[in-house]
Simulated scan of single mutants.
Amino acid sequence: MNEREEDLRVPLISFLLCLCVLIGGIFLFLYLFVPNLSEPWFPPIALILIGFPWLLWVLTYIYTCIKRCFGVSRNNTDSNRQISRRASTMANSRMARNASTTNGSNNAKEKQAQLGSASLNSSHCSKSEDPSITSSQEIEMPLTTSAPS
Rank of each mutant, 00 (worst) to 15 (best):
N2D: 15
P11N: 03
L12D: 02
G24V: 04
G24H: 04
G24R: 08
F27D: 07
F29E: 12
L30Q: 15
F33N: 13
V34D: 14
P35H: 07
L37V: 15
S38M: 11
P40R: 10
F42K: 06
I48W: 13
L49M: 13
F52M: 13
L56C: 05
L56R: 03
W57I: 08
V58I: 13
L59Y: 06
T60W: 05
Y63A: 13
Y63R: 14
C65T: 03
C65I: 13
G71L: 02
V72M: 05
V72N: 02
V72G: 02
S73C: 00
S73L: 01
S73M: 00
R74S: 11
R74K: 09
N75T: 08
T77I: 14
S79F: 06
N80Q: 15
Q82I: 13
R85F: 09
A87P: 00
R97Q: 11
N98L: 11
A99E: 04
S100V: 03
T101D: 08
T101Q: 12
N106M: 04
A108D: 01
A108N: 00
E110N: 02
E110W: 08
K111V: 05
K111H: 03
Q112R: 07
A113Q: 11
Q114K: 02
G116A: 12
A118S: 05
S119T: 14
L120G: 13
N121K: 10
S122E: 08
H124N: 15
H124C: 07
K127D: 10
E129W: 12
S136T: 12
E138W: 08
E138L: 13
E138A: 11
E140F: 10
M141E: 13
P142K: 12
T145A: 12
S146I: 10
P148T: 06
